[in-house]
Design a binder for these strands. Structure first.
Lengths: 141, 141
DNA sequence: TATAATTTTATAATGATTATTACTTTAACT
DNA sequence: AGTTAAAGTAATAATCATTATAAAATTATA
């Protein structure tokens, strides 16, 4: 059996999620390609391997993963949800020109020092937008 | 003439936006009530004063304001856009229980030190989610 | 005042997400 | 193994925010 599939299966089982084929494949896709795909991108990609797959299943699966904190939801664009299997606190930078989304890391503490000392903080999201170095170079703006 | 309306009118004119009544009212609402309303909230509120108002106009008006950087778009919830007349860089904390969104401030520099030195950063958004102090108190969790 | 340009409105279209229901697969039990 | 219940998946329709389009109203200009 494929090692990746074994690992993913284990991950799901550890979180009390039954490792059905679609679930394994969605998680595998999210972990393997560390992009930040939309539901549609996940669906269209997996459809190649699972011709009977429905988009509803992708939505349901992602909801389960969200509930179990196995993925995080990225709201960098209002009109489409993106998903990230990296649930460590980190930021996202989207290039408005090429559309690429880059991860970046920061000391989580910087967000704690603000005026919300006594609140219970569950999620921390940092989103930046601009033009990436590649695009800046190629544009020679 | 009302001082607020004069101020808002001036703000629009300074930004080469014709100060039509709906535009003045949308901006006035955003500045007066420093909440972070959705399009629907703005629409329903202003409808009381402007019975002929259409939601399309609210959308169009907000688009113009965005283009001129007079408001910023808040994507803290994926399914609904919120708007903020405060365009200074600041963060938003949403209480998942009462729904309230609080502003908070941070040293803008903390976002600059990341691995994006050579990118051109146009927008910086920090969103936190959790439970606010009020809700924590009243729950006596 | 007449005409052109702009703004607003009403309506329809789009697209992502959710809800519903039926179908299929898996699990449990005899 | 065969039967029934439960869980998961799929197909379809419904919802809702947003966008597009075209008509009506307003404002600016000659």
């Amino acid at each position: 059996m494929d090692t990746t599939i074994e690992l993913v299966t284990q991950k799901l089982v550890n979180n009390e999620i039954k490792p059905s084929y679609p679930r394994i494949k969605v998680m595998e896709y999210l972990m393997k390609w560390e992009n930040h795909p939309t539901v549609d991108e996940i669906y269209l990609e997996l459809l190649k391997e699972i011709p009977t797959l429905s988009k509803t299943t992708v939505y349901n699966t992602l909801d389960i993963f969200l509930d179990h904190n196995l993925v995080q939801l990225i709201n960098i664009e209002g009109h489409e949800a993106r998903f990230d299997a990296n649930v460590n606190v980190h930021g996202h930078f989207k290039c408005e020109q090429c559309g690429k989304i880059e991860d970046f890391y920061f000391d989580e503490g910087i967000v704690d020092v603000f005026s919300l000392q006594n609140c219970f903080i569950k999620e921390k999201h940092i989103y930046l937008k601009g033009i990436c170095t590649d695009c800046l170079d190629h544009n020679n703006v």
